[in-house]
Amino acid sequence: MSRRATRHPAIFTLQRCLRTAALPALGAAVVAFTLAMWTEPMVASAAAATGARAPWLSLPIFVCAFSCVVTTVLFWPLLAARRPGSDWLRRLQRGPLHGCGAALSGALLASLLVCAPLCTVYASALGAPSIARTHTLVPAPAEPLLSAKRPHLHFALAAPLLGNELRLRPLASLPEGPLRASRVRVMADGAPLAAATAEFDQTGQIVRIPFASRTISALELVLEDGTVPLFFPTGSVELIGAGEQSGLANGLFLALLAQIPLFVALAFACLAGAVAALPTVLAVAVGVLFVMTVGGEGPLTAALQGRLQGHWLLTTSVFRQCVPSLLLGSTAMIGAMMLRRRSRR
């Protein structure tokens, strides 16, 4: 790092955030790991239920982001209105946000540095698989109801996929006659995918169909017997890719995704700080952060779960989930620029 760079507000913020966030995040990880072990659920296979440990992974990430938000807002006076010393920075810092963007970058970088080991090493300790696979949700046909009147359902994949497992989780409707579980045969490109049929009689049942790796471009579900109509909306048919991806890379990608709530929270702080004082700005930023981490809005919750379930995160669907949050944060930043320009008048 050049000597000039070490005098940059982004580096000051990075150093401050690292100092204040690293230890609390580590402490939270220790506490969360202990709680995860203490509250181990009763399941058939703990390895299969690692996704349920997502709250214990989200806790240290939230603590890290919380520390970074509070530190940054307190450190950089221009993130809130009427802070002592802000006149100094308004004269010294160039740019429409007067260094708020640099402070935000420093906080994001610090959080990324803390989150990287959390999302790789700590997630592995929580049971995240060392490999990841792509999970593709097969789009549902126009009328996704499988019943005696309509015993065939066709699913077309956007592009042929090399997979080795299919998961079905339909919604069950009221039986059309005396209750008899519906038996469904699964065909891939015209050939049966498994010798046995899948049986469903209520919502929430999940059937796994492992098969030898093959490329699939179309799926067909055939109702062979039973009186329970089954509804297969998008999300109820999931094809799992055969290719193995690095769990470490998946963790690092999760660490990147974990910065989205922090980015949005600080962007909102920047926006609110143009007119509001410190308590309001802190409340707004922490509120946004809470909603986007613990509250499950935005891509982080699904990404945490995906990491622990071994879902490969570098897919278009995950990116698509990030877009609204990124747009929201960017809009808040643009709004902050406009408000700050106006409030100077």
């Binding site: 010393g85 802000s86 100094w88």
Partner: peptide, 13 residues
């Protein structure tokens, strides 16, 4: 140069 009244910013430097 302007030296405003009141405390300096970035007090942890």
């Amino acid at each position: 140069a302007f030296q405003p009244d009141g405390p300096l910013p970035l007090g942890v430097l």
